[in-house]
Simulated assay, not measured.
Amino acid sequence: MQNETSQIPGDTPRDYPRGLPRREDGLSRFLGGSPLSVAFRLILLSILVGVVLAAIGFDPWNIVASIRRLFNWIYELGFDAINGLWRYFLLGAVIVIPIWLISRLFGAPRGR
């Protein structure tokens, strides 16, 4: 039987570290990784969020006016949608209501 501390030929020693120990200082622990990789991820995320905000009309030089313009656009869009639905309803009702009324007036009574 083999002893627990004995080694098989070609095996690395049990007390030898597999890689260099990773030095985790306070800054890396605070940032959640190495400062360079965190900076790279933050730059990419900032560009992505900037593209999305630019698509909805934000301007980085006048953010308050951009937010006000966004809410105004949403407000007007809501009422334009209601106005559009109302127009479609009226257009369809001109055809649907008379046909329904004629079918009810001239339809045969149905027994239950």
Rank of each mutant, 00 (worst) to 15 (best):
P17Q: 09
Y88G: 02
L53H: 02
A55Q: 03
G26Y: 05
L77V: 00
I43D: 08
Y88C: 10
V38K: 07
E24G: 00
F71V: 03
L48V: 06
V38W: 03
V94I: 15
R41G: 01
V38Y: 02
E24I: 15
I47C: 04
L31Y: 08
A55L: 09
A55I: 02
D25V: 01
R22H: 13
A65V: 01
W86V: 08
L91Q: 07
F40K: 13
A54E: 02
G10K: 01
S37K: 09
R23H: 12
L31K: 05
I82F: 08
G92L: 13
R87D: 07
V52H: 03
I74G: 00
L45H: 02
L27V: 13
G78P: 00
I63Y: 02
I47T: 06
S37C: 01
V94A: 13
P13G: 14
D80F: 10
F30I: 06
A39S: 10
E24A: 04
R68L: 15
I43K: 13
I47E: 04
P60H: 03
L85H: 03
A55Y: 06
F79A: 02
N72Y: 12
R14Y: 12
R14E: 04
G57T: 03
A54D: 03
S37H: 08
I82L: 14
G19Q: 13
L53Y: 04
L31N: 07
V51Y: 06
V64D: 09
W86M: 10
V52G: 00
S28P: 00
F58H: 08
G78D: 07
I63T: 12
L70Y: 15
I56D: 01
L44V: 03
R69D: 15
A54F: 07
F89R: 08
S37F: 07
L70P: 03
N83K: 13
V49I: 13
A55R: 04
L44C: 06
P17V: 07
G84L: 13
F40V: 04
N72V: 07
L85C: 10
L91D: 10
R87L: 14
I74A: 12
V49L: 13
L31R: 05
V64E: 08
R22P: 01
G19V: 11
F30V: 05
L44F: 06
P17W: 09
L70Q: 11
G84C: 06
R29F: 06
W86E: 11
